[in-house]
Design a protein around this nucleic acid. Structure first.
Lengths: 248, 248
DNA sequence: GCAAAAGTGTTTCTCATACACCCATGT
DNA sequence: ACATGGGTGTATGAGAAACACTTTTGC
C-alpha cells in the first residue's frame, strides 16, 4: 500500500489546471472522481475534478505538479506556473467531498492545502494516458459542476491565465511548435472573447522579432497555404524591454 | 498555553512581506527571531525574519495574513495580496532554523507550508507595535541575511510587486492618502530603479482620470507648494480598459 | 534675494485603429 | 469555376520621448 509512504503529507496537494487548445477552443483536462474499489459506496455517483495529487515525501511542489501532468499526458516540457494556493477551512465541506475524504482514510475535519498550478498544451500534441480513471478534455465554457472546490480553482486559473497572457508571450504554449498567424490570433480571440483586425494583428506580430517565420507552409489545405511561424524564447528574452504602464 | 489550540495547523503558516515607503525609499518590516524565554539557548544569536505566523484553526489564510499585519502595525485596511507559496522540503535546513523549530516543539523533519503575502503601506501612517519582540523597518536594498528562507521570499515578493505595479495602479498603496505628483513619480523611480521625465510623467498621469487633484496644497515647505492628489479606485474600475499587449 | 522644488509646451516619431480587395490552393 | 481562408497598404489620431525655463514659497 503506497499510502503509508506518503501519509505524512496527505494534507499538502497540488491541483493542476491543464489547459489544452485544440485549434478552435480552450479545453481543460478533467479526471473522473470515484471511490477506491476496496470501499464501494453505491450512493456515490462519479463526477469530475481537476487533476491533482498529494505531494510525496522529499518532492518539491513543482516536481509534484510536473508529475501529475506527466502521468496523464506523457509531457514534461511545458509551461507550468504556480498561480494560487487554496487552504481555507471548510473548502471541502460538501457531503460528497467529505465522503471522498473519508474513503481515502482522511479526517474530513482536517485542513487540506492545495497549491494551484496551471499548464498549457496544444491538445494535438497529447494522447491521454489511462491512469486507472477516466480522463477527458472539456471545453472550458462547458465545464459543469466539479468536485471539491475545483470550479473556484478553475476560475482563478482562467483569471491568472488571462492576466499573464496580456503581458507575456505565453499564448504560444497553447499552439503546436509550428503555427500560422491566424491560429495565433484565434488563441487570443478565444481566450479574451473578442475579435481583432487581421491586418493590425499581423502588423503588431511583425514587430515581435521573437515570432519567427519558417521556410515552410501549411500543406493539404483547400485554400492558399499559410506561412508557418515559431516562437523563440531566447530572442524574446533578448529583445523585450521593461515596460511601465499602469493602466488607463 | 496557546499552542494546544493551534497545534493542528503548525504546518501551515503565512509569511507577510510588509512593504513600507517613507518618501525616499522602499522598506520592509522585519521582526527579531529569538527563542522562547522558557527555553533559553545561549548559543542562539537573535537575527531577523519577515513577519509571519501559523494559521489558526477556523481562520482563512487571508485572515491570518491580515491578523499578522494588524498585530504589528494596527492597520487592517491595506493592500494585501497572496503572491506565492513556499513548501519545498528542506527549505528550513539551516542549523539555526532547525534549532528554532525544535524550540517551539516542532519536528524539524516535517514539511512547513508558508503562504506568502505582500502588503503595502506608507510608513508615516504607521507606528509599530511591540508584540514581545523587536520590530523594525529596513530599506529593502540593505536587508542582510534573514532567518529561514526569507531572503528568497523577499526577492520573490519584490518580483511580484514590480510585476503588478507595471500593469495595475497599486503604487498608491505606498503613499499617504494625499500625495503630490513628484511623490508618485519617486515611488516608481525607486522601485524600478530608473528615472522618468517630469513633464512626460505628468502628462501621462493627467490622462488617468482616477488620479484626482484636491483643493489643497502642501504647507510649510520651503519652496513652491505642490498640488495634492488622491487615488480613486472607483473611478479606476469604471475607466480602465482591458488591454492586450504581449510585450515587444 | 536666494535656494529649492513646482509646474508647464512643442516637436518628432511610433503605434493603434479603421477599412476592402486580390491570391493560392483543393475540389 | 468556385469556395475557402491567406495575405496585403494607407490615412488618421493618440501617445511616447526628448528637451529648458518660469513660478512660488520659506528663509
Amino acid at each position: 500500500m503506497l499510502e503509508a509512504v506518503s501519509q505524512l503529507n496527505t494534507y499538502i496537494s497540488v491541483d493542476c489546471v491543464v489547459f489544452g487548445y485544440d485549434a478552435e477552443k480552450l479545453n481543460v483536462l478533467l479526471v473522473e472522481r470515484t471511490l477506491s474499489d476496496d470501499e464501494p459506496m453505491p450512493d456515490f455517483q462519479p463526477d469530475w475534478t481537476l487533476t491533482g495529487n498529494h505531494v510525496y515525501e522529499g518532492e518539491t511542489i513543482k516536481e509534484a505538479a510536473t508529475r501529475v501532468v506527466f502521468n496523464l499526458t506523457g509531457i514534461s516540457d511545458l509551461y507550468l506556473e504556480q498561480f494560487k494556493t487554496f487552504a481555507d477551512p471548510g473548502r471541502l465541506l460538501k457531503p460528497k467531498d467529505q465522503k471522498w475524504l473519508r474513503s481515502i482514510g482522511k479526517n474530513p475535519e482536517e485542513r487540506v492545502v492545495s497549491i494551484g498550478y496551471f499548464a498549457l498544451l496544444a491538445t494535438q500534441d497529447v494522447s491521454l494516458k489511462w491512469m486507472g480513471r477516466r480522463v477527458k478534455w472539456t471545453p472550458v465554457k462547458k465545464v459543469g459542476q466539479l468536485g471539491f472546490d475545483h470550479n473556484e480553482i478553475l476560475e482563478q486559473a482562467m483569471d491568472a491565465l488571462r492576466n499573464k497572457m496580456k503581458h507575456e508571450p505565453i499564448g504560444f504554449g497553447l499552439l503546436p511548435e509550428k503555427f500560422t498567424l491566424t491560429q495565433l490570433q484565434t488563441v487570443y480571440e478565444q481566450i479574451f472573447d473578442t475579435r481583432f483586425d487581421k491586418r493590425n494583428f499581423r502588423k503588431k506580430v511583425n514587430r515581435m522579432k521573437y515570432v519567427i517565420p519558417l521556410n515552410e507552409k501549411q500543406k493539404g489545405v483547400p485554400h492558399k497555404p499559410a506561412q508557418l511561424y515559431m516562437f523563440s524564447r531566447e530572442v524574446f528574452e533578448k529583445t523585450k524591454k521593461e515596460l511601465f504602464d499602469f493602466v488607463i
